[in-house]
Design a protein around this nucleic acid. Structure first.
Lengths: 224, 224
DNA sequence: GTTGGCTTGTGAACACGTGCACGTAGGGGA
DNA sequence: TCCCCTACGTGCACGTGTTCACAAGCCAAC
């Protein structure tokens, strides 16, 4: 396969944001949108929008802007959002259940197809209308669903093992919520969401504003 | 204030990961750790580890490595983790409640100090031992807590308004879970976690592996 | 005290992402 | 038909982040 048009990672990460902005604008009955307006809605600058969109193709009209409907279609197609992607959540603890109950997934084309947990007591339960399976069922579940996205919502110590089992079952897209660094085979996409890390990053900047690390030595005081 | 040592954003984002790796290694009774080992645990390469750590200071010993305990201390201090940071969650829906129930926050030094919701029916409720306040209480709550981190877990349409109110109440660190782009005044840190966006990014790469966008037009095939 | 081996700290090259500035093309009015 | 105005697409310069490679420094052994 010729690698087609390569799209920079940073751009890929922004496409979903543009898509949401387009949806907003579409609801507001706009038929075309300028890079400037799109930039405003997406919280970036206009040049970046144009460059990003240019990776998808030349879908704009000079002097006019982009056709909202058409651009939405092209972008959805490029992102693979023309069909639903079933999601399997592994780990039915607090976080797993919350994700299962969170309606935002289904609405955006990511229906929860199955829940999986290692705890035999939980297997057979139903959360938000979805049955909880054992880990052993993973290969069967994945085989029955086709292209699927795996979500890891287990404690940290179980994350790597679950990732291995997901990959072994044929899952090639994994989103990891467990606070642990995990590795996956080549050909498997891995993204992570780490809530504690986000808070710690905020803590860093907050503290810098507050006047830096609490220094015990008098000589290093805030004088500067 | 002389801006002290400037630490690149990318480095700041990795520090919490190093910190966790150090904690692991400390539990394994290791007293020193090499950049190589730390890199392995953090899922990056050794040169990056050394460069990152060098921004904090020269805390390593050539030929030996880093003292686990001492490095942990220095890093915690730099990240502002020597004391707890109370967190206020705005929006007590599915996600907000899940976050409130998720023990991982308190354990890592981010206790849930208050819950806030716009819905009068929810005000006065107790979730996981924390009372739900109205939005009007924000200024008072913040004033009573000092440096605090605000978490937005509302629907998208309410996010900007909540952000404004948080900032107005004196909150200068905000973590946004709502699927919306929001803006905050200068001097306020804003980070976002967008679950749908993560899934859509995975979808993009998954689809590329699966063989690219489903092209209807025969003429538009992979040729060019 | 000297030597050898190991690991840090960092300068320099490279890759990636961002933003400016401008050429270019299309639409609308005269 | 011609002109002007507007907004896209993109070459180029800049800044940030990553990686390599090696000198500097430290410990241990002899």
């Amino acid at each position: 396969m010729t690698e087609r048009r390569r799209i920079p990672e940073a751009t890929v990460a922004r496409l979903p944001v543009y898509l949401r902005a387009l949806a907003e604008e579409s609801e507001a009955k706009a038929t075309t949108i300028s890079s400037e307006r799109l930039a405003e809605l997406a919280g970036v600058n206009a040049a970046k929008v144009r460059k990003d969109l240019s990776y998808l193709g030349s879908y704009g009209t000079r002097g006019v802007g982009y056709d909202v409907e058409y651009l939405t279609f092209q972008m959805s197609r490029e992102l693979g959002l023309t069909h639903d992607w079933p999601v399997i959540i592994v780990g039915v603890g607090n976080l797993g259940q919350a994700l299962a109950n969170y309606g935002g997934f289904r609405d955006r084309g990511f229906p929860i197809a199955a829940l999986v947990d290692a705890d035999p007591d939980k297997v057979g339960d139903t959360v938000h209308g979805v049955e909880v399976h054992g880990l052993d069922d993973l290969p069967t579940l994945v085989a029955g669903l086709g292209s699927v996205i795996g979500i890891i919502a287990t404690p940290a110590h179980a994350a790597q093992s679950v990732a291995d089992q997901l990959a072994g079952a044929g899952v090639t897209s994994i989103l990891n919520f467990a606070p642990a660094v995990i590795s996956v085979p080549d050909g498997v996409s891995l993204r992570k969401v780490d809530l504690a890390v986000e808070l710690q990053i905020l803590s860093f900047y907050q503290q810098r504003r507050d006047g830096g690390p609490t220094v015990e030595e008098p000589s290093a005081a805030t004088a500067g």
